[in-house]
């Protein structure tokens, strides 16, 4: 689930997850809130951390300033863009 699409915009699913992280830092709760299987939330959380949109603090995840900015206007950072093949 690359969290940023080829246009450098945050994907809908990543947006839902980031928004849920603003409300709760527990991935279990994010999964519940978004109706998404927990394994997919864990996969996404890893990508969001790598892209700088979220930060892991012990067992919790929080949305970073970059994540909040991405939520408000779409991503412009060097997220998971892939190599374009």
């Amino acid at each position: 689930m690359p969290c940023v699409n080829a246009n450098g915009e945050i994907t809908e699913m990543a947006k839902r997850i980031l928004l849920a992280m603003v409300e709760s830092s527990s991935l279990d709760k994010v999964a519940e809130q978004t109706g998404t299987p927990l394994y997919r939330i864990r996969m996404a959380a890893r990508e969001l951390v790598e892209a700088g949109f979220a930060e892991q603090q012990a067992q919790s995840f929080v949305t970073t300033e970059a994540g909040l900015a991405a939520l408000s206007k779409g991503a412009t950072t060097s997220g998971s863009l892939g190599n374009g093949g």
């Binding site: 927990l38 394994y39 996969m43 996404a44 890893r46």
Partner: peptide
């Protein structure tokens, strides 16, 4: 097809 997956992502299921 859903991204990078680790077996541990399934922990608890």
């Amino acid at each position: 097809t859903h991204g990078t997956l680790r077996l541990e992502d399934f922990q608890g299921s």
